[in-house]
């Protein structure tokens, strides 16, 4: 294992930001720390960067403890949400700063800066100042600055959050391209599940200072372990055991043993099929349809309450149509109802 975080704990007064968190990153891997704001993901990134100190646990890089090493000696690269380029230096000076500190020769530095500008597709801005660039350009330069020193680990702290949608999508591709080309193990913090799904080899989903689930994007989307993960990773229909027993008894086949309130069934909107049923066999009614370009999202009233269904291609039905629902038993994932337990713990 390349980077190992073992039982990392960090508290701020009475508030526990990280509660014994353990994660692993392999050589060359792109890992996303995903979670809502306040879940501890940025705290974890800052601990790994050496920008704040652990209260408990270890961080190991290739088996060696990092805990006593100040940030500047870790040899990592970091990109912040706020770009954070040095305003008094040109683009070239910004990118070359880490090399200058390491005593790289002037000519070598110039060569490397040119190469990196080429890599982030901004070959002509070397002599500009950060204030003269757009947000997206600044963030590319920040990326180039971070990778200029051949970091042993690349840390990205919500690097796309300050950008508008189109630039964000572009830069997302850019980051992936650079990471794949150079094979730098990378840890990115984000609260955007779509971003995490698109970029990561592995997603670590966090909530309330603990890791809820870690796995491939497919794992987290299709096989969420808890209700929190299911709801965080896109839209899902969550049904209680009782509702499933009444409406879709076939789905009970995959249900794990245990009391009714322990687990809920998770059905992704695209896994529910709609069959028009003008006759008396209909079990549901289409309440509304939103056209989203590449797909249609339908709200359906059923015996178990409202469900969300997504279809590609032409609409199978219109608003007010009576339909029956088809769900393959293997499409249903039973997830632990961690939200109910949390609500029970904190009555507020």
């Amino acid at each position: 294992m390349y980077l190992t975080v073992r039982n990392a704990t960090k508290t701020y007064g009475p508030f526990t930001a990280l509660d014994s968190v353990s994660i692993e990153i392999e050589q060359g891997e792109f890992v996303c720390l995903l979670g809502p704001s306040g879940c501890g993901k940025t705290t974890l990134l800052r601990l790994i960067a050496g920008l704040s100190r652990l209260d408990g646990g270890d961080i190991l890089l290739e088996g060696a403890a990092l805990s006593d090493l100040p940030a500047r000696k870790r040899g990592f690269g970091i990109v912040f949400q706020s770009y954070s380029l040095f305003p008094n230096m040109t683009v070239a000076e910004n990118i070359g700063y880490g090399l200058k500190i390491r005593g790289t020769s002037r000519s070598e530095m110039a060569r490397r800066v040119a190469e990196l500008l080429e890599l982030v597709k901004l070959p002509d801005v070397a002599d500009k100042y950060p204030g003269q660039l757009s947000g997206g350009q600044q963030q590319r330069i920040a990326l180039a600055r971070a990778i200029a020193v051949d970091p042993r680990l690349l840390l990205l702290d919500e690097p796309l959050s300050a950008l508008d949608a189109k630039v964000r999508a572009e830069l997302r591709g850019e980051i992936l391209h650079v990471q794949r080309t150079l094979g730098i193990p990378t840890l990115m913090v984000t609260h955007d599940q779509e971003e995490a799904l698109a970029l990561a080899d592995k997603i670590i989903c966090m909530n309330h200072g603990v890791v809820v689930q870690a796995g491939t994007p497919e794992d987290l989307y299709q096989r969420p372990k808890t209700r929190f993960v299911a709801e965080f990773m896109g839209i899902s229909n969550l049904l209680s055991t009782d509702a499933v027993r009444r409406a879709f008894p076939a789905l009970l086949a995959t249900r794990p043993e245990g009391p009714d309130d322990r687990v809920v069934a998770c059905l992704r909107p695209e896994q529910i099929g709609l069959i028009p049923a003008p006759d008396g066999s209909a079990t549901a009614t289409v309440r509304g349809i939103s056209f989203l370009g590449n797909l249609r999202r339908l709200e359906v009233d059923s015996a178990v309450g409202p469900l969300i269904v997504e279809t590609h291609g032409a609409a199978p039905c219109r608003e007010g149509d009576r339909v029956t629902l088809s769900i393959a038993p293997e499409a249903c994932t039973w997830v632990a109802d961690d939200m109910a337990r949390q609500m029970a713990e904190s009555p507020a």
Partner: peptide
């Protein structure tokens, strides 16, 4: 973040 950026690049 400006100081942190400098720090993680290796500046004391």
């Amino acid at each position: 973040a400006l100081e942190e950026a400098a720090g993680s690049i290796g500046a004391g």
